[in-house]
Nucleic acid binder design. Structure first.
Length: 278
DNA sequence: CTTACGGCCTGTACGC
DNA sequence: TGCGTACAGGCCGTAA
């Protein structure tokens, strides 16, 4: 489900209810998600105060007073729902795996039918060195994303450009939707060999990645199927897709007479215009 | 070392 | 209606 814009939208929804708050009760309803919870998971969280809720790539990082960090990933189908004090509690469903109650009485429930998500804890002060985070590449909205930085990251890769954009070690936070959309904005073919992207093409790609992610965040992310923001509102960037899931429709680029095609790369669907993406 | 592929798990949409 | 198949926003381990 969620790529960087959706995770950032969730972060913005959760932050006011987590930052500065003490976690008074933590319940887990199974032994883990994609990976098991650490043995001391509940104990290490209970009674702790969250100092800051940060996002790195598609990960949410809740930093605790103990200097440990709750590392969270939504996988494909992960979702948070908030229930304010005094509001009727939603009935617990079979895919509600974690519940966290804050001292303000807010209940934060994590639901994830496919269980591809992750919740785990870092060692004190060592979140950035955690195995899940240490190999992540350029953070696209940090200012580190530039044409030369992309050129450097892509020059040794002998894969299709689309596959390289999905590799979190190169640019972190892009998923299937925004890879397709960024390549269309940049006018670059998803099939192009990664190492051929340099100079003006790399600069265009850096701009396209930044702009598509920024636009999507401004729209509250993309709501497909079951994705909703933390406050239950729906993002609407899906109405702005140029290529994703738009096979056989006309290319929206002005004066381009192409038609959007769907191909398979690395087992994933790629949507692009063969006319204006070279 | 790099790259390609299957698997993880469940839900949904679609064709017959 | 029921069943089988394909596919879904991600990532990892293994094989080549």
């Amino acid at each position: 489900m969620p790529e960087l814009p959706e995770v950032e939208t969730v972060r913005r929804g959760l932050a006011p209810h987590l930052e500065g708050q003490r976690l008074v009760r933590v319940q887990v309803r199974r032994a883990g998600l994609r990976i098991p919870f650490p043995p001391d998971f509940v104990q290490a969280l209970t009674g702790q105060r969250v100092t800051q809720l940060e996002r790195r790539a598609k990960y949410l990082l809740a930093h605790l007073e103990t200097q440990r960090t709750l590392i969270m990933h939504l996988g494909m189908s992960g979702r948070f729902t908030l229930t304010a004090p005094g509001r009727p509690m939603a009935e617990t469903g079979p895919h509600d795996h974690v519940q966290i109650d804050t001292e303000a009485g807010m209940r934060i429930a994590y639901t994830d039918p496919r269980r591809f998500g992750v919740m785990t804890l870092s060692d004190p002060g060592a979140a950035a060195q955690h195995k899940l985070l240490r190999d992540l590449g350029i953070e696209p909205l940090s200012g580190a994303l530039s044409g030369p930085a992309l050129t450097g990251a892509l020059k040794s890769r002998r894969t299709a450009l689309k596959a390289a954009l999905l590799d979190q070690r190169i640019v972190a936070g892009i998923g299937n939707i925004y890879a397709c959309e960024a390549l269309h904005r940049a006018g670059l073919s998803p099939r192009r060999l990664s190492c051929t992207v340099n100079g003006v093409r790399a600069a265009r790609l850096a701009d396209a990645i930044r702009s598509v992610l920024t636009d999507a965040i401004a729209a509250g992310g993309s709501s497909l199927r079951d994705y909703v923001g933390a406050d239950g509102t729906l993002g609407y960037f899906q109405y702005s897709f140029s290529v994703y899931d738009r096979a056989a429709t006309p290319c929206p680029k002005p004066r381009c007479k192409g038609t959007i095609e769907r191909i398979t790369q690395g087992g994933r669907s790629t949507f692009y215009c063969g006319r204006c993406q070279k």
